[in-house]
Simulated scan of single mutants.
Amino acid sequence: MGNTSAVSCLNDGAEGVHLNKYLTARQLELVQDTWDIMKTDLPTLGLTVFLKLFQTEPDLKRLFPKIVQMNDKNELEWEVDRDMLQRHAVTVMEGLGAAVESLDDSDFLNSVLVSIGQTHVKRHVKPAMLKRLWPSLNHGFQTMLGEVYTKETMEAWRRLYTYISSQMKRGMNDPDAKLSCDDVGTT
């Protein structure tokens, strides 16, 4: 399963965590197999996830000022620019897909996820908000996969999302750290 030493890619020497401590080989296989099904329709998956997120976590719509319209009282409206939302949702799903396709290289995956966490700080996303996306992702996966989305598969995806969130939080907690993977193998 990829590299055996934990590497951080952050100059602060923070210890990297490897995916094989979060998911079994079987869980990795379930994630990859179901991603192969879902990646064929990223626009539908992404819209399903984000519309559910806006429905269940309406306060998070403030994080999307270009997508969610404000009224003249500066209050959020339900009016959503679906084209912009779909573009954003596809970008997020493509990022998830890149993570799934990098599951065999925890060092690379960690560096990418830390960097994504750092960029989310600029968008006013707080680490505690990450867990609020899981129910909407879970809903999207269930909608796309139907009967294929078993309890075992759901648990594999939940564990992967926990891993992704933990790495993003590392970046969010140190948004100004310079990424340097030149030191791979030295931390």
Rank of each mutant, 00 (worst) to 15 (best):
D41C: 11
L42H: 12
L42P: 08
L42R: 13
P43C: 09
T44V: 06
T44Q: 09
L45A: 10
G46Q: 04
L47S: 04
T48F: 09
V49G: 02
V49M: 07
K52Q: 15
K52T: 08
F54D: 01
F54C: 03
Q55G: 11
Q55Y: 07
T56Q: 15
P58F: 07
P58W: 08
L60M: 11
R62S: 05
R62N: 07
F64I: 05
F64L: 05
I67P: 01
I67K: 00
V68F: 04
M70E: 12
M70I: 11
D72N: 10
K73R: 12
E75Q: 09
L76W: 05
E77N: 08
W78T: 14
W78R: 13
E79I: 14
E79F: 06
V80A: 06
V80G: 02
R82G: 06
R82N: 11
R87F: 15
A89T: 04
A89S: 04
M93E: 03
M93K: 02
G95N: 13
G95A: 12
V100S: 06
V100Q: 02
V100W: 04
V100L: 03
E101S: 14
S102V: 01
S102C: 06
D104R: 11
D105L: 05
S106T: 10
S106I: 08
D107T: 09
D107F: 03
F108T: 09
L109Q: 00
L109E: 01
L113Q: 09
L113F: 07
V114D: 03
I116T: 07
G117C: 07
G117V: 05
H120P: 12
K122S: 09
K122T: 12
K122Y: 08
V125Q: 04
M129V: 06
M129H: 13
K131M: 11
L133N: 05
L133W: 10
W134N: 03
W134D: 04
S136A: 15
S136W: 04
S136K: 06
G140W: 01
G140E: 02
L145W: 05
G146I: 06
E147M: 01
E147R: 00
V148M: 06
V148D: 08
V148C: 06
Y149R: 11
E152T: 07
T153H: 10
E155Q: 13
W157F: 07
R158P: 00
Y161H: 13
T162A: 14
Y163S: 02
Y163D: 01
Y163M: 05
S166M: 02
M168I: 03
R170K: 15
R170Q: 13
N173Y: 10
N173K: 12
N173E: 14
D174T: 12
D174W: 11
P175F: 11
A177Y: 13
L179K: 10
S180F: 11
V184R: 14
T186F: 12
T187P: 00
